[in-house]
């Protein structure tokens, strides 16, 4: 850190590349999705319990109902978004190699979008009765 090899002053090292002037939007969205899920968790649990022990046709019938499909879609959007931000924070905390970190953040984005789209597609497919 402050080894003799560095020619930079300590203040220059602390200031580094300067402030990114971002972070508040992620902080806000993390809270926004958290509140959304806190409200949605009860209906989602009810839906999951309703599904217990049903066969595919019965499950499809429940998931095909419009209010239930909308609740689940909202929950999917909120949870995958929340997951994306949360995992990014973990990556930023623990991966310090800059290139590996960028790759991880990118993979995290891909993964979360893929999970979200797959889930949304499944719900839409069931509710449109295809």
């Amino acid at each position: 850190m402050s080894g003799p090899s560095s020619m930079r002053t300590p203040l220059e090292r602390v200031r580094g590349l300067g402030s990114a002037h971002t972070g508040t939007s992620d902080f806000w969205r993390q809270r926004l999705t958290a509140v959304a899920m806190t409200l949605l968790i009860v209906p989602v649990i009810v839906v999951v319990i309703m599904l217990i022990g049903r066969n595919h046709a019965g499950a499809a019938q429940i998931l095909g109902s419009i209010p239930i499909a909308i609740i689940l879609l909202l929950f999917i959007v909120a949870s995958t978004w929340h997951m994306k931000i949360g995992m990014q924070v973990v990556i930023e905390d623990y991966i310090h190699n800059e290139k590996l970190k960028i790759a991880s953040v990118m993979a995290n984005n891909f993964f979360c979008v893929a999970v979200a789209l797959a889930s949304i597609y499944a719900i839409l497919k069931l509710s449109s009765g295809v």
């Binding site: 402030s19 990114a20 002037h21 971002t22 972070g23 508040t24 992620d26 902080f27 930023e92």
Partner: peptide, 14 residues
């Protein structure tokens, strides 16, 4: 506040 708003400054506190 501008100077603190950074994922690796203020928002590194959990």
């Amino acid at each position: 506040l501008d100077n603190l708003e950074d994922p690796f400054r203020l928002y590194r506190c959990h």
